[in-house]
Amino acid sequence: MSAEVLRAPGSDPGQWFTRAVLRNGPLGGLVALVVVMAVLSRDFLNGQNLLNVGVQASVTAILALGVTFVIVSAGIDLSVGSVAALSATVLAWAATKEGLPVWVAVLLGLAVGAGAGLLSGALVAYGRLPAFIATLAMLSVGRGLALVISGGSPIAFPSSVGRLGDTLGGWLPVPVLVTVAMGAVAALVLARTYTGRAMFAIGGNEEAARLSGIDVKRRKLVIYALSGLFAAVAGIVLAARLTSAQPQAAVGYELDAIAAVVIGGASLSGGSGKASGTLIGALILAVLRNGLNLLSVSAFWQQVATGLVIALAVLLDTLRRRSAR
């Protein structure tokens, strides 16, 4: 095209775009994706739709925040989808079927999530099972227990907890608020707490951490328990949106969660990761799905696009790090 001749070198929007994305990592990627979607679809960039994106991102985001802890410490947690479903099921069963006070049921649901994580952590830390295997086992056990407790069918969610799926003032979705709050908690844990700093040390070099007096085994218990706790919160938010606890909910969500963490710039080999990055990673996945829906792209092709975005995001991040060295 002749128009190209008129442009000064470097002012090519494509080049500018690439550089901006490279420099800013995941955030650059999110902005780029939003710009593309806004250009392609007129319906994308309005308040209501953006809030929808937030709601769609919320469950994955909360799960991914918990998984971030585990990945920063060089572990992996495949069980979060199952644990989310199990926690929500226990909550609903306790409140609806057993008639326990709702606050007791909520505490029970959260405790089940943290307990499942604790168990995975114990298998990893004391049983010396590879995290992949321990949490794969928990994935199966959690899903199975959810089915056993519910008898395989959805249980109505107590309406007071169900409000977590509503909006505040008729417009602000509560799941978005919960996600932001959990994001703040995760950021605080990672940056400022003993357990958080220990996650980076264990993930960076477990032997050096141990020789420097970090109580590696106990920290692993806490790390996996936190992941389980975040999964329980995610499960409750999901059930609130669906107004019932479904034993078959959140199947495969663990992979979305891991994808979000990795897109957010964490390394699967441990030692790096940020809560903000993970939130951005979850948003990138949600924006992509939402945008492709608006563009009426088939669900089949959406899967292809999601896979490409995951690969591209990590590829760009690797390039960015290499150029920064």
Binding site: R192, T193, Y194, T195, G196, R197, A198, F200, A201, G204, N205, E207, A208, A209, L211, S212, G213, I214, G271, S272
Partner: peptide, 27 residues
């Protein structure tokens, strides 16, 4: 065995006193 190679020097230097520097869970 001695270093977190990809962590900052600051994090490496303070690693062995992480617990000492923690008050009520916060570093």
């Amino acid at each position: 065995q001695g270093l977190l190679l990809d962590a900052s020097l600051g994090d490496n230097l303070t690693l062995a006193r992480l617990e000492q520097d923690t008050r009520g869970g916060f570093v």
